[in-house]
Amino acid sequence: MVSLTRQKDERVVGLENKVYRELMYIVYALLLASLIYNYVQFGAQEAFLSIEVALLLLLSLYSGIRYQMMGLYTDKAEEYLVKKKKKYSTFYFVAGGLLGLGFSFSFAFNSAINYAETTAQSITYFATVFFVCAIIYIVPLALLTGFMPWISERKAKKRLQEDEGES
């Protein structure tokens, strides 16, 4: 039964949602730009203990929780499986790994430039810090970002199999 009492125009709602989405990307971009500026201007410690990092983490956490509550991860995983024949989680594992790689490079460069006195020392510091940071950041970040999509992918495969079983 169609009920349209006190309902907003769907087209207007859709357009408003488009604006809100653009607004969200702008906020993320501004926070990231501010974080990079703080890093360049005041150094790593000031940058990473800033409110921008807290906001980025909070927004990402909220987004992840809402995605999970609405079942969006599973829906997107199913869409990927059906349309693109690709694994939904692969992108997120790789993205997390690349993020970890970025962090590792960043800390390694920082150590090499700010704390080394000779070229040989720079290379040593770079290699050591990069190696340690890679262990600390790459795998955990890859697992962190890819875990939810991987779980959703398994649920989506199960849903598709059940659907095929019914027909």
Partner: peptide, 19 residues
């Protein structure tokens, strides 16, 4: 139908696909 006049207009010219 509780939408705006513009929505009806866009539906009629095929520029908006209603649900």
């Amino acid at each position: 139908v509780q939408v705006t006049r513009q929505t009806i207009s866009l539906i009629e010219v095929g520029k908006y696909n209603p649900t």
